[in-house]
């Protein structure tokens, strides 16, 4: 095989050119270019990690803001509910008071009216009595020719009106 047959003749050339080209590969490519590529990769990894961290932070902040918004919203809703309840209570009280006042007025008016009615009734009854007494005295005077005392007639009429 040529590897062995040519060894004595070619080993120096093989070693020399191997060192030259592998040396070039190592110093120019390995030492010169590879660290830059690795650096780029590292930089990208760092940036990705940072971005993920920032995204995580933003998400947490959004969550916190949503939470605080929810709290604020709940507080506002509770406040609104309280306002409504208060307004309702106030309105109810007011209505009650107004109703009570109206009731008092109505009661007064009713009492007044009833008093008026009673007075009118009494006046009417008196008038009827008077008219009846006069009529009865006239009738007695004409029929029986008696001239009776007005007071007696009136008492008799009253008696009859009440019991008749």
């Amino acid at each position: 095989m040529p590897q062995i047959e040519q060894l004595a003749a070619t080993f120096s050339s093989q070693i020399f050119w191997m060192l030259v080209f592998f040396g070039f590969t190592f110093f120019v490519i390995g030492r010169g270019m590879v660290p830059k590529i690795m650096d780029t990769v590292a930089k990208r990894d760092t940036q990705i990690a940072d971005d993920l961290l920032a995204a995580e932070r933003a998400r947490k902040q959004a969550d916190a803001e949503e939470e605080s918004w929810r709290e604020r919203e709940n507080a506002n809703r509770a406040k609104a509910h309280a306002l409504i309840a208060e307004a309702r209570a106030t309105a109810a009280t007011e209505t009650e008071q107004r109703l009570a006042a109206a009731q008092v007025t109505i009661d007064g008016k009713i009492a007044e009216a009833e008093a008026g009615i009673a007075a009118a009734r009494k006046a009417a009854a008196d008038e009827i009595e008077t008219v009846a007494a006069e009529a009865a005295r006239d009738i007695i005077g004409r029929v029986a020719g008696l001239s009776l005392d007005e007071g007696q007639v009136r008492a008799a009429v009253k008696e009859n009106l009440v019991h008749g």
């Binding site: 120096s12 050339s13 093989q14 050119w17 030259v20 080209f21």
Partner: peptide
């Protein structure tokens, strides 16, 4: 020492 630029060296290059 011989350092002929051989076909081997060419393929290294």
């Amino acid at each position: 020492y011989n350092i002929a630029f051989t076909n081997s060296a060419l393929w290294m290059a």
